[in-house]
Amino acid sequence: MESIIQEYREYQSVIKGYTPKVVLGTERELKKLTKHLEEHSLNFQSVKLVDLENYCIERTEGKSLGYRNLIVSQTRSFFTYLKQQEYCFDNPSIRLSYTNLDTHQALPEVASLEEIQDCLKELRRQVNSFLGRRQFAPIRKRNLTLFALMYATGIRAGEAANLLLSDINLGGTGSQYSGW
């Protein structure tokens, strides 16, 4: 199993172009996975989905959801590689889910339609207000536009923050919403 991990490390470095830090972190994690499999008399060919789920649960107990997702992602990528290289015939990790490991996790709260409409009204009021300093008018317009974009499309704040002007279709071929 050690030689397969070394091959995977080279694959990540050369083919995928991952940074040395990512490659080293993945190698460390895969060594822990192989140790876990050996302790349970398993190998890459005999491991089942439930074994991988149990490993991920044990490995990430008390850790953040982001860390849990990292472990799942590393495991899934590795088993995809194993199948591509014909080290195993089945990829049990393909059904390994990022979300089903913690059934007690609460969903985030979502603003009601009324709360969103109130926010839009307030942002519109600020844009149209002459009471504030005029130098802030472009910032208020930007805020209204970003809020309306996020509400209308469902994109995340980080995705909206990373938008470039070139990402926007100014041709007007999409649907128009005149409510803003």
Rank of each mutant, 00 (worst) to 15 (best):
E2V: 07
I4H: 15
I4T: 07
I4N: 13
Q6E: 10
E7P: 11
R9P: 00
E10T: 12
Y11D: 02
K16L: 14
T19C: 09
P20H: 08
V22Q: 14
V23Y: 07
L24T: 11
G25P: 00
R28D: 15
L30E: 05
L33N: 01
E39A: 04
F44S: 00
Q45A: 11
C56Y: 08
I57M: 12
E58M: 01
R59G: 00
L65T: 14
L65W: 09
L65Y: 08
Y67K: 00
L70I: 12
I71R: 03
I71V: 11
V72C: 07
S73A: 12
S73R: 05
S73D: 00
T75V: 14
T80L: 14
T80G: 13
L82K: 07
L82I: 00
K83P: 12
Q84Y: 06
E86N: 12
D90C: 02
I94Y: 14
I94S: 15
R95I: 02
R95Y: 14
T99F: 05
T99P: 01
T99E: 13
D102C: 07
H104P: 03
A106V: 10
E109R: 04
E109L: 05
A111L: 15
S112T: 12
E115P: 04
E115Y: 03
Q117W: 10
E122I: 11
R125I: 02
R125E: 09
V127Y: 14
N128Y: 08
S129H: 08
L131Q: 10
R134V: 09
Q135I: 09
P138Q: 05
R140M: 15
R140Q: 13
R140D: 10
R142Q: 09
R142E: 01
L146R: 03
M150Y: 11
R156D: 12
R156V: 01
A157T: 05
L163N: 08
L164E: 15
L164Q: 10
L165W: 08
L165S: 01
G174L: 02
S175C: 08
S178V: 03
W180E: 13
W180S: 05
W180N: 10
